[in-house]
């Protein structure tokens, strides 16, 4: 039990100033869903909390062919899940959003918050990695852009410096013939922390060969990680069953899962193999022809195929 002060900036500048003044014992919150839970259990004990919710103009989700998808720091996971642009162009992210907690938490939690808390099991994170997300990070000295996989440096730790704020996430526009899916492995269809989550996004050439493949794994390493080895095996290849199976094996080899109350390490590794295959197969099958939202929702959390 640690009491804290509540601070409420009404502009980004004010937020940066409050963060700078407060120093290390100040915590920035957006949806506050992770924060309040960890504060109650004594994990986080800040002296003051800077609540971003009333900073105007940060709750956008926009799309254009040049910049791709831009997600403001206050866009909620539910906003993402409900966005037609996301469902049609970034189905793996829609799947990640729909697999995230339950509606009531999705209505509060933000994608930016999910990134900043850097939980290895964050459900939106593998898809963001697989879509090559870039992060706009603002500090008193100006802004910088970092690729998402450089933002994660350890469990719960990011490359953000003290006093910096993540203000936007940008996903480049996918190539024409692209498909993707995220599957969460968990015994329940909602309100669960994933035991394993895998997102795959593939783009195909006109001849059907793989132009690019990005595979990202959740909950099987200290941070969400890309399976670069598996990706490399696929590029320029025909995405047939044998190549996809090989990619699954490589992805499983590349991760470093732990055992906990949810499952054992070996099982997690095996699930990485299976889900990598399944997400890849689905991505290939739906490239350029995104599945319906009902299908995305079902596939994301289906317990048995």
């Amino acid at each position: 039990m640690a009491r804290f002060d509540y601070l409420e900036p009404h502009s980004l500048d004010e937020a940066l100033r409050l963060l700078a003044e407060g120093g290390d014992n100040t915590r920035l919150v957006a949806g506050s869903t992770d924060f309040l839970v960890r504060w109650r259990t004594g994990v986080w004990r800040p002296d003051s909390v800077v609540c971003m919710q009333h900073v105007p103009g940060l709750d956008y989700i926009t799309w254009n062919p040049d910049d791709g998808l831009s997600i403001g720091a206050l866009a909620t996971v539910q906003d993402i899940e409900q966005s037609d642009e996301v469902r049609n162009r970034y189905p793996a992210l829609a799947a990640g959003a729909t697999a995230f907690a339950g509606v009531q938490v999705r209505n509060l939690a933000t994608v930016a918050g999910n990134i900043c808390n850097a939980s290895p099991a964050g459900d939106t994170l593998p898809a963001l990695l697989a879509y090559n997300a870039q992060c706009r990070i603002v500090g008193t000295g100006g802004e910088r852009w970092l690729p998402l996989d450089e933002v994660f440096v350890g469990p719960g730790r990011t490359a953000l410096e003290s006093g910096e704020i993540l203000t936007e996430i940008r996903l480049p526009a996918p190539a024409e013939n692209t498909g993707g899916l995220y599957i969460k492995h968990s015994p329940r269809g909602a309100m669960d922390i994933s035991a394993v989550g895998v997102a795959s996004v593939v783009s195909l050439n006109a001849d059907g060969a793989c132009a690019s493949a990005r595979i990202a794994l959740g909950a099987v390493a200290p941070t969400p990680v890309r399976a670069y080895g598996a990706e490399g095996r696929l590029v320029s290849q025909t995405l047939d069953a044998a190549n996809i199976a090989e990619a699954g094996r490589l992805a499983a080899q590349s991760c470093s899962p732990i055992a906990d109350v949810r499952s054992g390490a070996d099982y997690r590794r095996e699930m990485v193999r299976v889900l990598t295959e399944r997400t890849l197969s689905h991505a290939v099958a739906t490239a350029g022809n995104p599945p319906s939202y009902d299908d995305i929702r079902r596939l994301a959390v289906q317990t048995a195929w």
Binding site: H185, P187, M271, V274, Q302, T303, A304, W305
Partner: peptide, 9 residues
């Protein structure tokens, strides 16, 4: 029964 994951629906 999902033979690859062992999960039951």
């Amino acid at each position: 029964v999902d033979r690859d994951t062992g999960q039951i629906k």
